[in-house]
Design a protein around this nucleic acid. Structure first.
Lengths: 155, 155
DNA sequence: CTCGGTGCAAAGCTTTTGCATCCGC
DNA sequence: GCGGATGCAAAAGCTTTGCACCGAG
């Protein structure tokens, strides 16, 4: 995990600077949560993260996980998604290419894709309606045409 | 509300046909909910709808509202949105132009806009990843540049 | 030493479920 | 009359809140 360790060292600096600027305390829990996020892969929800940390015998509470995630979202180190199932999904966002999501309506797998044209739309709509667009969420929903999708028959 | 009444007559036919095709019962509750949705305007959530119907002295249960909304979403007469606040928002979708949403990060107002280029992205990503994209959700988040936004100072 | 942050548990909210009753077909 | 649909209330999940205690500054 040398690569992820290096990534964590980088975001740790950013997070530290953010906490100092906002006059928030640099508690060990906050850094432990950041580390857990940046050394694991893919999307996760609060329960995932909480269980992972418990499994490492790290003492945290769900309340602190929620609180810290809010902070991390605010300083753009983590992105929060609502994929339609009333369950917030999170994802580390520093050092990864900006992307959007495609969700399989059969097996609910989440795929990622990039398309630069979304920025043009974002910019044009912002200009048109006189808004400063900060970010966006684009989710495509569709059925995989390949046979490999295991839930295909359940349709 | 003559226009909305006419619109309701139209969707009523579509809904009836759908229920017959799926061999679902044509209960008065289902049509009452459809009518309530198509004679009111804008976005709504389950509680809104439930209260509106109660105020009209119509006897429904939340369970039936949830159940019926699922059916209406399935037959494309209603669209379901997750705007990030753990609260499903719904919107009638027949007879209105397809659109996406822009949410003000200051006052949380929801604006609508149209951009045909999203279809191109949708189609291209579908072709590329071999998916049949059925629908999408695009939400832009930004701050209104005008002074009229009442929550501006709270920033 | 102060007071922001944490852990724990309780409360809050939206949504789902179980079951008796009702009514469309 | 059968079996799907409804109403009601209880239960289930995710998230927030209250409070006593802890520890960063």
């Amino acid at each position: 995990m040398a690569l992820n360790e290096k990534l964590y060292e980088e975001v740790k600096k950013i997070f530290t600077a953010y906490l100092e600027r906002k006059e928030l305390r640099k508690t060990p829990e906050r850094f432990a949560i950041l580390e857990e996020i940046y050394t694991r892969a893919g999307h996760f929800d609060v329960e995932n993260l909480y269980i992972s940390m418990k499994n490492r015998n790290y003492r945290v509470s769900r309340a602190t996980v929620y609180n810290t995630l809010d902070i991390l979202v605010d300083c753009d180190l983590v992105t929060k998604h609502q994929f339609g199932n009333n369950l917030a999904q999170y994802e580390k966002s520093y050092g990864s290419k900006q992307h959007d999501h495609l969700i399989c309506t059969d097996c609910h797998n989440v795929l990622e894709f990039c398309d630069p044209r979304i920025y043009n739309i974002q910019k044009m709509v912002g200009d048109l309606l006189d808004f400063s667009i900060m970010h966006h969420s684009l989710i495509l929903y569709g059925a995989c045409n390949k046979e490999k999708c295991e839930n295909k028959k359940s349709k």
